[in-house]
């Protein structure tokens, strides 16, 4: 008959209990992470809905933009596909940049294929608050295709 060490048996049982507990904690952690991600998705959906309701009721849509730090200057690219060239209006102030343009009616019709929500869409409007004060007289802008490229020197 084999000798059973009661202490060894107890040690093994305790180890098993610890392993089980750890596994449960890991499972709980994974489900909490998933739940957090789902919650953050819900908040995101709410933000998107609010933003779009505001946008569509005002008839102005916000263009996509990109801000690139070029070291001694900041380049801001504002993309306004379908904008009517001669209506592009750029205001560069000390602490704010505003870009506006009317969107070609035909472009709206073709892009949105008669979606009811797009009925009032007629222009782009975008305001960017600069993180620092600038000298507007040193800033410049140009249009390249559908993009307005604004260069703001630093300092």
């Amino acid at each position: 008959m084999a000798f059973v060490d009661p202490f060894e048996e107890r040690r093994r049982r305790i180890n098993e209990l610890f392993r089980d507990a750890l596994r449960r904690i890991e499972e709980l952690e994974a489900s909490l992470v998933n739940e957090l991600m789902r919650l953050s998705d819900e908040i995101e959906y709410e933000r998107i809905l609010d933003e779009r309701i505001n946008m569509l009721s005002s008839g102005a849509i916000e263009p996509l933009y990109q801000i690139i730090d070029r070291g001694d200057s900041i380049q801001i690219i504002v993309d306004m596909p379908g904008a009517v060239g001669e209506t592009v209006n750029v205001y560069i102030g000390e602490s704010e940049i505003r870009v506006e343009a009317r969107i070609d009616e035909d472009a709206i019709r073709r892009a949105f294929r008669g979606f009811v929500w797009a009925e009032r869409v007629e222009r782009y409007s975008w305001t960017y608050r600069l993180p620092f004060k600038i000298d507007p007289s040193r800033a410049s802008w140009r249009v390249a295709g559908s993009r307005v490229i604004i260069t703001v020197p630093k300092g």
Partner: peptide
């Protein structure tokens, strides 16, 4: 049709950017 595509997909791009960040 690049202009139309960009206009049409502007909002999907915004949603995608937010997802990409997360």
């Amino acid at each position: 049709e690049a202009e139309l595509i960009k206009l049409r997909l502007k909002e999907l791009m915004k949603e995608t950017k937010s997802v990409m960040a997360r």
